[in-house]
């Protein structure tokens, strides 16, 4: 699959940033090394970036810049979880997770009082799916159990979650990105959630 690329020069013009800024962000790990794609051109080598990812990342950095140090931003854009713990009330009051989902979660994890980042991540995904009406409560349990069991095995690698249904029976799986996955014709994919993107959004919400 040919990725949509943007050259360094086009990028700087488009976003109105300078070489200095770009290199500073790279040094601070705001832009991952593997987004710098070298290609040969008539002037020797030219650097290209995956267009969509890069434009998103840069507008994010520029929007966040005020009041945050580059180190803080680096922490937010990295796929690694942050160290947080919230109580049920905090999560509800800040509108991160709905009460319905929290109660549902507590039915399965009785007595839990504080939620760490991984808990919140799973909750957030289930919350979204329940709210959108894509899944029912039983299917929520399935996703909850699957994610809690499988997700730690990825050890922070970017991955995605598939929820699919065939002949009325729901199933779900997780897959490393970039990867390829194919299903037979009868399978209907109900939801496909990019975990890395969800983590980024979530970090912004709870920061």
């Amino acid at each position: 699959m040919e990725q949509n690329l943007i050259s360094k020069k086009e990028l700087l013009d488009l976003m109105g940033i300078s070489y200095g800024q770009l290199y500073r962000w790279k040094r601070k790990n705001l832009i991952p090394e593997d987004w710098f794609i070298k290609k040969s051109s008539f002037t020797g080598q030219e650097t290209f970036f995956p267009k969509e990812k890069m434009l998103n990342r840069i507008s994010k950095i520029m929007n966040m810049k005020e009041g945050l140090s580059l180190e803080d931003i680096a922490g937010m854009v990295s796929p690694n979880p942050v160290n947080v713990s919230f109580t049920k009330e905090e999560l509800m009051n800040r509108g991160i997770i709905s009460e319905f989902t929290l109660n549902f979660y507590l039915e399965h994890h009785k007595g839990i009082e504080t939620f760490n980042f991984d808990n919140i991540l799973v909750l957030n995904i289930i919350d979204r799916l329940l709210k959108s009406g894509d899944i029912n409560k039983d299917e929520g349990v399935l996703i909850l159990n699957t994610m809690e069991e499988i997700y730690p095995k990825f050890e922070g690698k970017p991955c995605e979650l598939f929820v699919m249904r065939k002949l009325g029976i729901t199933s779900c799986c997780m897959n490393v990105i970039p990867g390829q996955i194919y299903f037979d014709e009868g399978v209907k994919i109900i939801a496909r959630i990019n975990i890395a993107v969800t983590i980024e959004e979530l970090k912004l919400n709870i920061a």
């Binding site: 020069k9 300078s18 070489y19 200095g20 290199y23 002037t43 020797g44």
Partner: peptide, 18 residues
Amino acid sequence: EGDEIYLENTRAKIVRGN
């Protein structure tokens, strides 16, 4: 590649800056 560039005794294929 940089914002402010001053060079002496330098051989380079490309110099890009403000």
